[in-house]
């Protein structure tokens, strides 16, 4: 029954323009991340080549090309920013679309007059969104791998494995936002209010919480910095201890470790940093299951 509901939902999602547009934009930003990586590589390498030629002409030994010293996956460092921004928005809308039609069009009443349990329904919806996310991230991974191949002319097996791990982490992170999209529909009952409140949750998790933990420097939200920032102000000293609960920062730090762009000392903290990301997804899944159990689908027709 879970498979039936999931398959049905995937077919419905595939035909929705909003979903297609968001999927396309997410794949596009993946290509953009690769393009930006290639562009900076290309520009700096050209400057390096000119400088190296001059140095050789003057009898000085040229230093190695800085790009050759950087890990191959550092070209995709922008993806660590795009996933919490565009990817999470995509996930919120995906979760919203998964259940909103049942709620707003009264279809919930039809579904639960059939022989399905609420757990089967919830798991079917979550499974369909999870699969849709795998498809989106799979397409993004394909584009990213292609970008790396174009720039580096080769892709090591270890890099492919790291890329896979990065996208697996992104999937886990984005599942929380899918569940937020579903929960918002179940709690608010209204199509527009549900989307607005889910967006609000996305804003809080992505921008507000990091500001209260370690977002004192604007660059912090773009470049993962491992250690909490020292400050003489007591308020910020206290709030800096909340960094483990700032899921977006934990995601960025974990992604930086996986992509090999984090400081060496951060590598050992991988499991610790992964924990809040996984815990949030698990807690939201439990809340979703509980809400579906308690939800009154007989009143599911409040389409404004």
């Amino acid at each position: 029954m879970i498979g039936t509901i999931a398959t049905h939902q995937l077919v419905a999602l595939r035909r929705q323009r909003v979903f297609a547009a968001l999927l396309a934009s997410f794949v596009l930003v993946s290509a953009l991340a690769g393009l930006l990586g290639w562009s900076s590589n290309h520009t700096i390498s050209r400057v390096y080549d000119e400088a190296a030629k001059l140095m050789v002409a003057t009898g000085q030994p040229p230093p190695p090309n800085p790009f050759l010293l950087k890990p191959a996956l550092s070209l995709l460092s922008n993806m660590v920013v795009y996933v919490p921004l565009i990817g999470a928005l995509f996930a919120v809308v995906l979760g919203h679309l998964s259940v909103v039609e049942d709620e707003a069009s009264g279809l919930g009443r039809l579904l639960f007059s059939r022989h399905i349990t609420r757990t089967q329904y919830a798991m079917g919806k979550v499974t369909s969104a999870a699969v849709a996310l795998v498809i989106a991230l799979g397409a993004s991974m394909g584009v990213s791998a292609l970008s790396l191949l174009v720039v580096n002319h080769a892709l090591a097996v270890s890099d492919v494995a790291r890329l896979g791990l990065f996208y697996a982490l992104s999937w886990l992170y984005l599942m929380s936002f899918v569940l937020i999209g579903i929960i918002a529909v179940l709690v608010t009952h209204r199509r527009s209010l549900a989307l607005l409140s889910a967006m609000g949750a996305w804003l809080v998790l992505t921008f507000v919480v990091p500001q209260f933990t370690s977002g004192l420097r604007p660059t912090q939200s773009l470049n993962p910095i491992i250690e909490p920032i020292g400050t003489s102000q007591r308020f910020f000293q206290i709030t800096a201890h909340g960094q483990p609960f700032s899921v977006v920062e934990q995601y960025k730090a974990t992604a930086a470790v996986i992509l090999n762009t984090a400081p060496a000392e951060a590598t050992g903290q991988l499991a610790l940093r992964l924990l809040p990301v996984a815990a949030l997804a698990a807690i939201l899944l439990l809340i979703t299951l509980k809400l579906v159990q308690r939800h009154d689908f007989s009143r599911s027709a409040s389409n404004e």
Binding site: S105, G106, R109, S113
Partner: peptide, 18 residues
């Protein structure tokens, strides 16, 4: 019960994309 009943609610819509 659900195996032996059919139900048409008031003003219900089906899945429009299907």
């Amino acid at each position: 019960v659900t195996a032996c009943i059919g139900y048409l609610p008031a003003e219900v819509r089906m899945y429009g994309h299907l």
